[in-house]
């Protein structure tokens, strides 16, 4: 049952051959695979970390750009608003001035027309007076009657509101 013989040598040779073959077919490829997997996972994690960082930076950049753009837009709007208000003010002022000018011109025209009307009237009155006077002279009216006649005529004119007496 227990006899030591040459089998021991065969078993040891067996073992050494098995060790050599397993080293070639099992340990080396498996350890290489484990190593390469470790490297890959490490690399992937590193890459993921880097990409995350990049994305973060990009996001921050975008946000700052957006903020800047918003500020710029606000600035433009403010400027435009300011300019618009200014322009409106200008327009209003101009319009007011124009209105004032038109009004003054109209007033002057009215004044002139009135003046002309008054002058015309005066001449008319004078000519009528002369006419009446000559008529009365022809009809030998006395001074007093003459005077009354003129006065009456003028009053009539005033009553008709043809102008202010000067």
């Amino acid at each position: 049952m227990v006899d030591l013989n040459i089998t021991m040598l065969w078993e040891v040779v067996n073992f050494l051959v098995l060790m050599y073959l397993l080293k070639r077919f099992l340990y080396k490829p498996v350890m290489n695979m484990l190593d390469s997997r470790r490297q890959k996972i490490k690399g992937d994690l590193e890459q993921a970390r880097r990409q995350k960082e990049e994305a973060h930076q990009l996001k921050e950049k975008h946000q700052s750009e957006l903020k800047e753009a918003r500020q710029k837009a606000q600035q433009i709007i403010d400027e435009a608003e300011g300019r618009g208000k200014e322009r409106a003010q200008e327009i209003i002022t101009e319009a007011r001035e124009e209105a004032e000018r038109i009004k003054e011109r109209n007033l002057a025209e009215i004044e002139q027309a009135r003046q002309e009307a008054a002058d015309e009237l005066r001449q008319e009155v004078a000519s009528i007076s002369m006419m009446v006077a000559s008529k009365f002279l022809r009809e030998k009216l006395d001074e007093k009657e003459h005077q009354e006649l003129i006065q009456k005529y003028i009053e009539d004119l005033e009553a008709a509101r043809l102008g202010e007496a000067k």
């Binding site: 067996n14 098995l18 397993l22 077919f25 099992l26 490829p29 290489n32 695979m33 390469s36 890959k40």
Partner: peptide, 18 residues
């Protein structure tokens, strides 16, 4: 046993995948 082990090892590592 040795042959079985070697065949098994060969089969396990013939097409190593990640």
């Amino acid at each position: 046993v040795c042959i079985v082990i070697i065949i098994g090892a060969r089969m396990a590592t013939r097409e190593m995948k990640l």
